[in-house]
């Protein structure tokens, strides 16, 4: 496992609203995440996990503080670079899937490649590759709507990895799934972490999932309460 520095944050603050409705969603966040890590951001609902993930994924800007990706201050990057970075280096998995339910599995999976401007043949080849990893290559032409919840989330993982990202951000990826299906999804994600050295940043309130990550960052009311290696077990 490499020890390259991937993401650093210094003194991050995120404030929502103004004046009377002002609300500090994140306070004083200092973090360093290395390539190849599997990190759980764990905390109760409303504690600021998603907000932190959005900042790390460069989907949002902090109110104050600095974020560095590969040592570069991201606030200084132009929008074009940020878009390219998210497209090439990040994959996203969300609790609510966010699929075009009337479209085919294939068309859902190739979305990041379409955005990247990759040609039709290459798109299809890579989509098949990604679907093989999540064992859904036989559903390539199925309508997304006709899949089960677990299958949908696997399609979302295929979509997240289709452009060979370095990091996968997953926000409550098993939140809408039963325990057994959720476990399968996590197995796939950890396999990607082990075999492809993809950094995992998983937002969850589920202790079992957090326990499978090598590192746990606990958040409460927008502040980090603990950050360290998972005690028993860790990633299998």
């Amino acid at each position: 496992m490499t020890k390259d520095l991937l993401l650093e944050t210094y003194n991050l603050h995120k404030t929502y609203g103004k004046k009377s409705t002002k609300f500090d969603a994140l306070c004083d966040i200092d973090l360093k995440i290395n390539t190849g890590e599997s990190v759980a951001i764990i905390g109760k609902s409303g504690s600021g996990k998603s907000t932190l993930m959005h900042l790390l994924a460069l989907l949002d800007q902090p109110t104050t503080g600095t974020i560095k990706l590969h040592g570069t201050k991201t606030a200084e990057l132009p929008a074009r670079r940020l878009n390219r970075l998210r497209n090439h280096e990040f994959g996203f998995v969300f609790q609510q899937f966010f699929m075009n339910s009337n479209d085919s599995v294939l068309n859902n999976v190739i979305l990041p490649l379409k955005i990247a401007g990759i040609g039709f043949r290459e798109r299809k080849r890579r989509a098949i590759e990604a679907l093989k990893i999540v064992e859904l290559e036989d559903k390539i032409h199925a309508k997304a709507n006709d899949l089960s919840g677990g299958q949908k989330q696997r399609v979302c993982i295929a979509r997240a990895i289709v452009n060979n990202p370095k990091v996968i951000f997953a926000d409550e990826p098993t939140g809408n799934l039963d325990t057994i299906t959720g476990e399968k999804i996590m197995n796939i994600l950890f396999k990607l972490n082990r075999e492809k050295d993809i950094t995992l940043i998983i937002v969850t309130h589920d202790e079992d999932i957090a326990n499978r990550c090598r590192r746990q960052i606990r958040i409460q009311d927008g502040k980090i309460t603990s950050d360290g290696k998972t005690q028993k077990g860790g990633a299998k």
Partner: peptide, 16 residues
């Protein structure tokens, strides 16, 4: 709205 958000998260520019 969500689809637009997702595509922008995946790097689609506002111009596109």
């Amino acid at each position: 709205t969500r689809e637009i958000g997702l595509m922008k998260a995946m790097g689609l520019s506002s111009g596109k």
